[in-house]
Amino acid sequence: MHAPLDESIRPRGRRWLLAVGLSAAAGLGVFAYFHSNRPPGGASTSALPLVMRAQPVPLPNLRVLDGTGRPVDLASFKGKMVLLNIWATWCPPCRQEMPSLDRLQAQLGGGDFQVVALSVDAGAKALDRVKSFYASEGIKHLAVYLDADAAAIFTLKAGGVPTTLLLDRQGRELGRMSGTAEWDSPQIVKALQALLGAQAK
């Protein structure tokens, strides 16, 4: 008695199964794609507070000033991994995290890694303000860099300060975050060391 009914339902049931199966396969594919495109050492980057890119993203060049007022290209840091911190003296959270960036530079800075603290302070006294902040906070290991045109905010699309980007040895963006972190915490140092090892030449 119920046989015809059952038959009319069964093909539809199979179609549903097929649809679910196909969606699952597609989802798995997308996951696998992004997973395979993670930077090497992907497992350890989860300890970083940064939002990591699926793959390294080339950045436009940025010309800034050093502590003596001479122009420096962001591209000149190629060959090192760079933690680029965009900040300003008028920004309380930026001021708060600067000592931890200084300690990170003391610990990991060298030929293979550098913390670049780039101030977007504006005006004729900008360089003086940055230097007097370094002096009052005892910042000793970070070099002074000034982006008086605030080009970093616009060309690197930083929505606010602080914004911190991690760049690979080719100057490409590996990841970024807005807001503060305890940059010399053991987890972050360990994750950065692992990344430096994984991306070794």
Partner: peptide
Amino acid sequence: QCPDVCPTTLTEVVQ
């Protein structure tokens, strides 16, 4: 006294 991330509107007008 922005707590975590500071807006850059004033910087934008300077620019």
